[in-house]
Design a protein around this nucleic acid. Structure first.
Lengths: 216, 216
DNA sequence: ATCTGTTTCGAACATCTGTTCGCTTATTTA
DNA sequence: TAAATAAGCGAACAGATGTTCGAAACAGAT
């Protein structure tokens, strides 16, 4: 054995151990090492490990699975540094969206004092524009698969198209309904056969529902 | 099961996992955990681990020695979270979640070739643990307000509690149903009166649904 | 070519590790 | 009290993992 000099294969094994350790967050097994460096037998991997142990590059606990550890701990910190360098991945666009609680008539809904909390959500989910979140109360929209406790994202706008699901202000309360205009009147349609359509001529559309989500 | 509340034993197990991880620099085995917390049977340790998995505090790779990992305290994820916190105004913890398409029997669902897309979502929405996304097909869960085209976040686990909404593999297809065990049999209950309960003894639970969302 | 040391391989084996099952014991609930 | 649930136990099992051994391939030196 050539003392103090790592062969290509030995360096390959050390690198594989470091990489596997870093990607799986635990030491690799002999079989994982064998596969990583292209050895077709576990015994071959063990042979290499034994060599590296004898040279002082590795330590191993006998008969313990994943008992291999690199003798040089600085390797690990180096690996962590590399991982951090790669990890600057914030994919897609994000938006910080206010979660609004009760809505008082006339008060701008995004006024600071009405905001319970902020959530950061992907734009792909809530869309563009002025968006806020509401927590749904009641079951009037259950046939539209919107139920008590769900959160809805609402994009602020004053008008809506027929069939849109909208958040509207009615008698000082926020409500979620399907928007419908007909015969010169505006209707707010619950999606639950137990409720009657509401004449919404004096309601104020707050915005259109762009997303629904619930945590279980 | 008492949701969201850790029993003394459960906290003890979590602490033991953290301590053993720190002292040995690798995840512990079930037997090591059992000894650390004073349980005299491996099965008891597994029982506790399963509970914590169901609650989302742990993740585990099937049939892999030392495959247990804490869901939140991983050094790497923490480092990544810190890095993101510096470079952005994003508040709260975030997770990059894979959107999985069709599921072939036997193939690990998070295998690279099955992943259509990655979405970054707040942990407050999808929870802890090993989570993936599925797009819902069919209307069998419409009474649970889950309908065609919705996305569901599924936390991987092999078992479930009665009443949990789960994703299960049945005849090579992924399906979403309510999980129910009774009289020694496992049932998968659709939430739509037009469908009949399915005897799910040979079904494989992929995980529990932790969140639902849809874009309109 | 022959020898020698190195490296790889496959197979069998021993041990470790995760999983499953039936059973018991408390505790809680109806 | 009876039934259901939570928690634990031991044993058997299956799969993963480390170990050992003999044989073969390979390269360099003689």
């Amino acid at each position: 054995m050539n003392e103090n000099q790592l062969s290509a294969r030995q360096q390959q094994v050390l690198d594989a151990i470091r990489d596997l350790r870093n990607s799986t967050d635990m030491p690799p097994t002999l079989r994982e090492i064998a596969e990583a460096v292209g050895l077709k037998s576990v015994a071959s991997a063990k042979y290499q490990i034994d060599q590296l142990k004898n040279m002082g590059y590795l330590a191993q606990i006998d008969n313990v699975s994943r008992g291999i550890s690199l003798a040089d701990q600085s390797e690990r910190q180096q690996a962590i540094a590399e991982a951090e360098a790669e990890s600057n991945v914030v994919t897609g666009a994000f938006r910080k969206i206010p979660l609004v609680g009760q809505i008082a008539a006339g008060i701008p809904i995004t006024a600071e004092q009405n905001i319970d909390e902020w959530l950061t959500l992907p734009e792909s989910l809530v869309g563009k524009g002025d968006v806020f979140l509401l927590k749904v109360k009641g079951d009037s929209m259950i046939d539209a698969a919107i139920c008590e406790g769900d959160y809805i994202a609402v994009r602020q706008q004053q008008t809506a198209d027929n069939g849109d699901i909208v958040a509207a202000e009615l008698d000082g309360e926020a409500t979620v309904k399907v928007f419908k205009q007909r015969d010169g009147h505006t209707w707010l349609l619950p999606q639950n056969s137990a409720y009657e359509p509401i004449l919404g001529d004096h309601a104020k559309v707050m915005g259109k529902v762009t997303a629904v989500f619930r945590s279980l």
